[in-house]
């Protein structure tokens, strides 16, 4: 017979477990440090390589130069103009796409005739990138703000519709039975069962829609606009003001992160009942 034994005879069991716990905590701290270190490391490396001209500083200006450009643009006010118009387009287009998407998705999820009628249309239109429809959108809505809003709305609409409908249809039968057994009318069923039950999956669609909205706005502004972050990136590149182009890119990264945090916060507020909430 062989025993599994601990070597430290002189330590008490509490001490052994406490040491183990502290080891685990140290490991955890190391992981956190890595997360913070990685972007700093990359930025430092970039700065060095660019300053020493190992990489071409015309195309990859050092981060400090980009930061300087950023503050310069804030001072002249150009950044605020580009930023505000882009954000307005994103938020407006997002709402214009998400709200009808939620409504149609709920109707499709709840009523089979709606589902069977709209499903083929949604499925057929979904694979077409809205950007490819930009010429048609411009023909219909002109080159003004409306065409940008519609482009974003179009790309937000589809993931929201599909996820909302799936959310309603995936509500477990037992909840439908309970509602029916307790005499829920169609209005009660909608507000007490269908909507809250569909919300988690619906939110995934909204999150996807938000990510797509950001992609779309940049591309749309590159193609047909004279303001906005996408326009800033494209004209900076064309005029060879590469630092300003990088400012645009970093802003997009920042807003992508910011919006997903915002939605995650909203989700936790709206869905306090979820297992992981």
């Amino acid at each position: 017979m062989e025993f599994v034994k601990r070597a430290d005879r002189e330590k008490s069991p509490e001490e052994i477990e406490r040491d183990e716990w502290e080891r685990q905590k140290a490991k955890q701290r190391l992981k956190q440090a890595m997360t913070i270190a990685s972007p700093i490391f990359i930025l430092l490396l970039w700065e060095m390589l660019s300053r020493t001209e190992i990489i071409d500083s015309r195309f990859f200006p050092p981060p400090t130069a980009i930061v300087a450009a950023f503050f310069n643009m804030i001072q002249t006010g150009t950044l605020f103009d580009h930023l505000s118009i882009s954000l307005l387009r994103i938020v407006g287009g997002f709402l214009l796409g998400a709200i009808p998407g939620i409504v149609l998705g709920l109707l499709m999820g709840m009523y089979a005739p709606f589902r069977h009628f709209f499903q083929p249309l949604v499925m057929a239109l979904m694979p077409i990138p809205t950007l490819a429809l930009l010429p048609i959108i411009i023909i219909i809505f002109g080159i003004g703000e409306m065409s940008k809003l519609v482009t974003i709305a179009g790309s937000v609409f589809f993931p929201v519709v599909i996820n909302t409908a799936a959310g309603v249809m995936n509500i477990e039968q037992i909840y439908v039975d309970v509602a029916k057994n307790y005499g829920a009318g169609s209005k009660d069923f909608f507000f007490q069962v269908a909507l809250p039950g569909a919300l988690p999956v619906m939110f995934e669609g909204i999150q996807m829609g938000q990510a797509i909205a950001l992609l779309t706005i940049v591309a749309a502004e590159m193609m047909g606009a004279n303001e906005g972050i996408g326009y800033l990136i494209w004209t900076s590149y064309k005029a060879f003001v590469i630092t300003e182009m990088f400012v645009g890119l970093i802003l997009i990264s920042f807003f992508g992160y910011f919006f997903s945090l915002l939605l995650r916060w909203l989700q936790a507020k709206l869905l306090p009942w979820r297992e992981n909430g």
């Binding site: 039975d177 309970v178 057994n181 307790y182 009318g185 007490q192 919300l199 979820r274």
Partner: peptide, 27 residues
Amino acid sequence: QSMVFQEKGVFPWLTVAENVAFGLKMQ
């Protein structure tokens, strides 16, 4: 009639009190 279902018959998105009140609210 009212039914007590097998497990999982309680709505996860309603609080305990809201679940108990469900039938009364429907009425």
